[in-house]
């Protein structure tokens, strides 16, 4: 069974300046364990699609199922962790307590909370920062903490909206490696929004190229790269070929306008 399945998905926002067609006839199937990147120019509906999957936005047409349920049911079943574009840590909570937030809400016991916080802090290499407040951490560390927060509970889907958009190249590379490792270790299904072609190609098993006005999918590229991906795979001919195809897809989207 597919984890996420969109058929003829449409979403039109009613705004004061008239309707905005954010998603038009989006068809996409995501299988269990896929790492799917969404790439496309600003305003093409990447965030909107992810929010639809999360049940935070409601499509005006078509069908969308998550784990075989409606997105709202999936949300209530706590089927996914969502990483927003900004870290969005609560300033009055320490890093440890921020990560414990979903656990508190979901009613995990104190000892279970402590154990899980420790484990995910380890996973994102923030051990020792548990007692620090968010403002005492760099932007990249805060973003890692917010990923840890999404990993703390047992959702088998992870949705990430440009989690590394604001970070420099070096930090980004490291975090990309970490995310891949994490994906390998946990077997989660990941939806990942990015503006960076190399990032999309490096991480994904499937790259969804989108174009704006109205937001739609113009190409879906199945990556042929192996699961094990050292950073220097980005110099391989195969990698460059996929990147080319993504770039062509993005360009074609622009031509249409």
């Amino acid at each position: 069974m597919s984890v996420i399945e969109a058929k003829g998905l449409n979403l039109t926002f009613q705004t004061n300046d008239g309707p905005v067609h954010a998603l038009k006839d989006v068809n996409l199937t995501i299988e269990k364990g896929d790492f799917v990147s969404f790439i496309g120019p600003s305003g093409c509906g990447k965030t909107t699609f992810l929010r639809c999957v999360a049940g935070l936005e409601h499509p005006t047409g078509g069908t969308l199922s998550v784990n075989g349920m409606t997105p709202d049911e999936a949300r209530k079943a706590r089927a996914y962790g969502y990483v927003f574009q900004a870290a969005g840590l609560y300033p009055w909570r320490t890093i440890g307590r921020n990560i414990a937030l979903p656990l508190e809400i979901m009613g995990y016991s104190k000892s279970e909370q402590a154990e899980r916080v420790k484990r995910v802090l380890d996973l994102v290499e923030l051990t020792g920062f548990e007692k620090k407040f968010p403002w005492q951490l760099s932007g990249g560390m805060q973003q890692r903490a917010s990923i840890a927060r999404a990993l703390a509970f047992d959702a088998d889907i992870l949705l990430m909206d440009e989690p590394f958009g604001a970070l420099d190249e070096i930090v980004r590379d490291r975090l990309n490696e970490e995310v891949l490792k994490l994906w390998n270790n946990t077997g989660k299904t990941i939806g990942f929004v990015t503006h960076s072609i190399p990032e999309a190609v490096y991480l994904s098993t499937k790259i969804v190229v989108m174009s704006p006005r109205p937001g739609r999918i113009t190409d879906v590229i199945e990556s042929t790269l192996p699961r094990e991906r050292p950073l220097d795979i980005r110099d391989s001919a195969e990698f460059i070929a996929i990147a080319h195809r993504v770039r062509d897809g993005l360009r074609a989207g622009h031509m249409d306008e």
């Binding site: 996914y80 927003f84 969005g88 609560y90 937030l101």
Partner: peptide, 27 residues
């Protein structure tokens, strides 16, 4: 919005939203 949406992704109840987000934010 983001802080509120975050709680929705956890399917937090209204009272959890009050005690864990709105009240501390209002201090």
């Amino acid at each position: 919005h983001m802080q509120l949406d975050l709680l929705r992704t956890y399917n937090a109840s209204k009272s959890q939203g009050f005690w864990k987000l709105r009240l501390p934010a209002s201090m």
